[in-house]
Design a protein around this nucleic acid. Sequence first.
DNA 1: ACCTCATATCAAAAATATTTGATACGTTAT
DNA 2: ATAACGTATCAAATATTTTTGATATGAGGT
Lengths: 104, 104
Amino acid sequence: MAMYEEHARVFKAFCDKKRLRILELLRGGEKCACVLIEQLDMGQSALSYHMKILVESGVVESRQEGKWTHYKISEKGSAYAGDLLKELTTPNTIIKKGDGFLRA
Amino acid sequence: MAMYEEHARVFKAFCDKKRLRILELLRGGEKCACVLIEQLDMGQSALSYHMKILVESGVVESRQEGKWTHYKISEKGSAYAGDLLKELTTPNTIIKKGDGFLRA
DNA sequence: ACCTCATATCAAAAATATTTGATACGTTAT
DNA sequence: ATAACGTATCAAATATTTTTGATATGAGGT
């Protein structure tokens, strides 16, 4: 199923050290890529690569302003990730034949 | 900081297609490795590898019973992952000097 | 138009993760 | 004690991800 791939993409945001560091910075509010880069022992194109993964996860959103790109944590995307995580770890109640309430 | 590494480890459980498939199976309840393997187009040692990552994330717990290893989703570990995700995506209110309530 | 700046993209190199097959370990049965 | 079974671990092969350096793109300023 392609669904697994899609779900995995969401959590890619959180399973890497450097991306967690970026999220930590974004918890302080929207930041321009140029600001991120000067905090982050990382080359410009490596940052761009990680930002792409973060945006593709839905957890971060980007906004252009002239030549700058600003990034921030997406409330909606984060909520989705949280809900998904809960779903993926919650018992999957399968209603089997004969498991009904009024079973004899 | 080593904290990022540790947090990343938790989400490693969810950022891989095959591990999501395993979690899906475990949502149906505790399963023996031998049961997992027959559902999962994957060799025995590959399964063992993924199970190790899942257990190290805290999201899955294992139990020995004779020669069998049984795995199930850990409620505690899942709750921790959920809480952590929320924390990592929640604005980090930094109280700066001069930002106080009674500022002139 | 031309130049500079900020960021994205590309291809190759480097690093890391995953799979495979062989073997080791612990448990149970004979 | 030996054999068979289920799982873990190891090292090597393979695949995927990440970094790097070069270049492209697009916006603004001159």
